[in-house]
Design a protein around this nucleic acid. Structure first.
Lengths: 357, 357
DNA sequence: TACCGCAGAGAAAGCCCTTTCCCGCAGGGA
DNA sequence: TCCCTGCGGGAAAGGGCTTTCTCTGCGGTA
């Protein structure tokens, strides 16, 4: 690999001059030398060693991002927002997938710190886990103590800058909608219990139902992975235990899609026999059939805000921005059926082998 | 930020010893010193500067990946495969989104080279663009000349290791299926003309039709962006020009989903009135309604192969692995309707405002 | 003519690690 | 007793770059 001194030697100048030409330093260099250097760069296909540069330069530029999984649409949208701002400011993003493994999350904080990122953004639900939270906060504090900036998206346990989707109100809106449609027997397909996102959304939902004199007993909640298969499976369990259900709230859209698959496999018509509500409003939500009624979160905007916080001029006080949730009515939620679906679910009629796999 | 010498000083040892403890060097260190060093590390919250490490160590470990967009399911799946192998081998992945901008692709090759990656993987279609291809190959050659390994996924213009999905056969299978179902008036919703993936798939499709004495005139092909909205829009144009169509082949699943949205908005029943075929078999394909009949590509496996090639022992001859495409029959492709759909499409009946937006 | 100032180039000091090389010391064999 | 060996530790040399500091030589001023 050609080095700067190779270039300098070939151009017949000192490494200092070569460096100045290559970086467009403010220090003037005569045109003749400049051209000789550029020629040498081209001939040698020289590319500066980024690590050496970052070591020699004092200022840090890259930004680290830790998400559950970039390919999960929820995080893909957030990342899109992050990218937009970062690119505008000429920042490189280092994106890490934690796959919701707390240990990996901790490791990535270290890794990114080691890579000298200027800021760190953690996106995705927090955990109901004292020990982990404390550990994480210690690590983040240590990082902040050395001048690093931190922002979190969707988790409340951090004391610094934060962007918070209003999960609780979102859950409340979902509950209100279903109550308005006359539903009483409402099941919930929930994400992992340990995630604060799950409990926040659940809390809002429960509040809405309680206010309407309805209940949300634990037996009508099933916890599973926050993805399509988790939703499909939880829905099946829910239906098996309680065939009287007239509505299902899935705590994110992926789970809702799984729920739809299970319902389809069992021959239950949505929304005629049973209503389904999602959460997040991922792009695919409008393209499933029936199109998903869901609670929209401004995902891209959440990313934009978080990155702006972190790259903005250092605010003295940590800022928390709460972004509103909003109900999007599409086709999966309808009025409660008039007749009791007494026999529904008792004769599952699989339409396709792979629908619920 | 604490440095290694800070740690060493605090532990009362030399930086060399501290380094050995921290990296688990093979050189033995007495337990007493080891503990002193570890204590100092903990107290100072020391994290080694990754750039300094990479500069000091000779061997390169990270692998660079350039894809169109990780959040596009096609690339998300490939990336999953890449990750799997990389993680097994303790390699860090640097993933860059080119958003199908050739210039950005070139820039990222430089960037990753500058970051001293041990290997480079380019995933995603090549371009019908001589100048760009030459430039790219020059850059890659320069990189390979310095010991870097390169593999491409799904593009044939590179001379080194490659993993190739059999796009042409995939197109052929799609054509065969539709011919078998009796279709003659077949429209194609294609990706950008400039992509080799588009032309390869199209070539296979055309071959199948030709063998069956059918035709695929240019007027039945619409080129658009390789995404949902592109598919929706191209389908609309296709239908406007030729309402007699009994089948539509979308050249990837995202476009197929857009096509379904347009057909739904126009009140055309799939597959009773018109059949739809997708390509790729992204995870969502089975969850749309009707479930998408499509050509499956072993996306995850493509990633696994590519990473294995690049991390495997340096083979003397460049290897090209062709991975087979396979037809997956679901619910969007049916026999050609018996009656001519003379009036269909003339009375579009929008079901929802946002279906085609 | 002597001196000053400045433009433009190079020398060299880091940036933070890893790793080779070397040194001192203790123990074992002759 | 002396020498050799081997172990544990430190000194120091990079690794490739940026940047400050220094130096040279020129034009301009007194």
């Amino acid at each position: 690999m050609a080095t700067l001194s190779d270039v300098a030697r070939r151009a017949g100048v000192s490494p200092a001059t070569a460096s100045r030409v290559i970086n467009g330093s403010s220090k003037p260099v005569t045109d003749e030398l400049r051209e000789r250097v550029l020629a040498a760069v081209a001939e040698l296909q020289y590319v500066p060693n980024a690590h050496a540069q970052l070591l020699a330069r004092s200022h840090r530029s890259a930004v680290g991002v830790i998400v559950h999984d970039v390919s999960d649409p929820y995080f893909a949208e957030i990342t899109r927002g992050l990218q937009r701002v970062a690119t505008d400011q000429g920042r490189l993003l280092m994106i890490c997938n934690s796959y919701r493994d707390p240990d990996r999350e901790l490791e990535y904080v270290e890794l990114l710190r080691g890579h000298q990122v200027a800021a760190l953004i953690l996106a995705g639900s927090g955990y109901h886990d004292e020990a982990f939270t404390r550990q994480l906060n210690e690590k983040l504090a240590a990082y902040e103590a050395t001048g690093g900036r931190v922002a979190v998206i969707g988790r409340h346990e951090h004391s610094g800058d934060a962007v918070m989707p209003d999960n609780r109100t979102g859950g409340y809106l979902a509950g209100q909608e279903l109550c308005g449609l006359g539903h009483r027997a409402i099941g919930v397909v929930a994400g992992p219990r340990i995630l604060t996102t799950t409990t926040d959304r659940l809390a809002g939902l429960r509040q809405a139902l309680t206010e309407q004199g309805r209940e949300l007993p634990e037996r009508r909640i099933r916890y599973a992975e926050f993805d399509r298969d988790g939703g499909a499976e939880a829905t099946a369990r829910l239906l098996d235990a309680d065939p009287e259900l007239t509505a299902i709230v899935a705590l994110n859209d992926s789970m809702a899609i799984g729920a739809l698959a299970t319902l389809r496999a069992r021959g239950l018509a949505v929304p005629q026999q049973i209503s389904v509500l999602g959460f997040d409003d991922m792009p695919i939500a409008r393209d499933v059939t029936p199109a998903l009624t869901t609670v929209r979160l401004p995902l891209v905007d959440m990313g934009v805000r978080a990155m702006s916080l972190v790259l903005g001029v250092g605010a003295p006080t940590p800022r928390v921005e709460v972004l509103p949730a909003e109900l999007v009515r599409r086709d999966t939620a309808g009025p409660v059926p008039l007749s009791t679906r007494a026999t529904a679910g008792s004769a599952p009629r699989a339409r396709r082998g792979d629908s619920t796999s």
